[in-house]
C-alpha cells in the first residue's frame, strides 16, 4: 500500500500545534501564574508589590469575605442585565427571522453595527443619554415616572442599562440563529394540529429556540458578571462590581494575591452557575 501524506499518524497533532502553542502561552501559562500568585504573601520589609510564595490559602477566604457585597452585586446586575437583554432580544430576533423578509440582512447588520464603535465610547455615550442634558431624564420627569430630584447617572440603573445595551448583540445573534433554523412548516403543522398562535409559540417555537436562548444568556451573563467598564463609567462607589475590585487591586493597590484569588473565585462561581444552568435549562429539551 502506498502511504499518502494524509494518512501519516502525526499529521493531526502537527495541525493542532499552533493552537495548542497559543493556548499554552496565552491561557494556560498565565492561569498557572495567577494560581501561583493567589497564595503569595508580602515579603517582610519588602517594597510595595513584592510578594513571595507561602501557600497561604487563607487569601481566598479573606478576599471573599472582604468583597462579598461586590460579588453579590455582580451576579445580581449580570442576572438583571441578562433578563433585560433576553426580553429585548427575543422579540427582535423573532421579528428578524420570521417577519423581516427582504430587510433581514439589513437588520442583522444593524444589530452588529454598534461593534464598529469602541466599547468604551459607547458606554461613555450612555452617560450623555442618561445625563441631565439627555432626553431620557426630562421625558421621565415630565411623565412623573421619576421625581424631579432623581438622577439616572451614577446609579445601579445606569450600570445595568449599560450592560444590557453592550451585550445585546451577543444575546440577539444566537437566538436569531436558532429561530431562523426553525422550519416554518412545523409551525403550520402545529396550527393544523389544533394549536392557536400562543400555544404554538409555547409548545413549538420556544422549545425549538432554546439552544439560542441558552447560548445567548451564557454569552451575556458570563462577561457581564466579570465586567467592570460599565460600573466604572456609569456607576458610583455604591455600585462597584467584583470586576472593579479586581481591577483596583491589580493596578491601584498592587495587591496581586488578593486580585488573583478574587479572579479564581469569580471563575469558579461562574463555572458552577453555568453548569447548574445548563443542566436545568435542559439538554433534554434541546434537539
Amino acid at each position: 500500500m502506498v502511504k499518502t501524506g494524509i494518512s501519516r499518524p502525526g499529521t493531526p497533532y502537527l495541525l493542532l500545534l499552533p493552537g495548542v502553542a497559543f493556548l499554552f502561552t496565552f491561557f494556560l501559562w498565565p492561569i498557572a501564574n495567577l494560581a501561583q500568585t493567589s497564595t503569595q504573601t508580602p515579603i517582610a520589609g519588602g517594597d510595595t508589590g513584592e510578594y513571595e510564595q507561602s501557600l497561604r490559602w487563607q487569601n481566598y477566604i479573606d478576599a471573599f469575605l472582604e468583597n462579598k457585597e461586590q460579588f453579590g452585586r455582580s451576579f445580581l446586575y449580570a442576572a438583571i442585565a441578562t433578563l433585560a437583554a433576553l426580553a429585548i432580544a427575543y422579540p427582535l430576533a423573532y421579528a428578524i427571522a420570521f417577519k423581516a423578509g427582504k430587510m433581514k440582512n439589513v437588520l442583522l447588520v444593524l444589530v452588529v453595527a454598534p461593534f464598529f464603535t469602541s466599547f468604551l465610547l459607547r458606554t461613555i455615550a450612555w452617560k450623555q443619554i442618561l445625563g441631565e442634558q439627555g432626553f431620557v431624564v426630562p421625558v421621565l420627569r415630565d411623565l412623573h415616572i421619576i421625581s424631579p430630584a432623581t438622577t439616572l447617572t451614577s446609579s445601579a440603573f445606569a450600570v445595568v442599562a449599560g450592560m444590557t445595551y453592550n451585550f445585546l448583540p451577543f444575546m440577539t445573534l444566537p437566538i436569531y440563529a436558532s429561530i431562523d433554523r426553525i422550519d416554518p412548516r412545523t409551525l403550520e403543522a402545529s396550527g393544523d394540529l389544533y394549536a392557536n398562535g400562543i400555544t404554538t409559540f409555547r409548545k413549538v417555537t420556544l422549545p425549538l429556540s432554546m439552544p439560542g436562548v441558552v447560548a445567548g444568556t451564557l454569552l451575556t451573563f458570563i462577561p457581564a458578571a466579570g465586567d467592570y467598564v460599565n460600573a466604572a463609567i456609569l456607576g458610583s462607589p455604591q455600585t462597584k462590581m467584583i470586576g472593579n475590585v479586581i481591577e483596583s487591586r491589580f493596578f491601584k493597590v498592587v495587591d496581586y494575591p488578593t486580585a488573583a484569588a478574587l479572579s479564581f473565585t469569580l471563575m469558579a462561581a461562574i463555572l458552577i452557575l453555568v453548569t447548574v444552568y445548563i443542566r436545568k435549562a435542559g439538554t433534554e429539551e434541546l434537539v
Binding site: 412548516r185 412545523t186 403550520e188 393544523d192 389544533y194 392557536n196 434541546l286
Partner: peptide
C-alpha cells in the same frame, strides 16, 4: 376559519414533525 378550528389535518410534504 383558522386552521386550528378546522377538523382537518394535513400530512405535510416534508412531514414537518416536531424535532424536539
Amino acid at each position: 376559519t383558522k386552521p386550528y378550528q378546522r377538523p382537518i389535518n394535513t400530512v405535510f410534504q416534508n412531514y414537518a414533525l416536531f424535532p424536539h
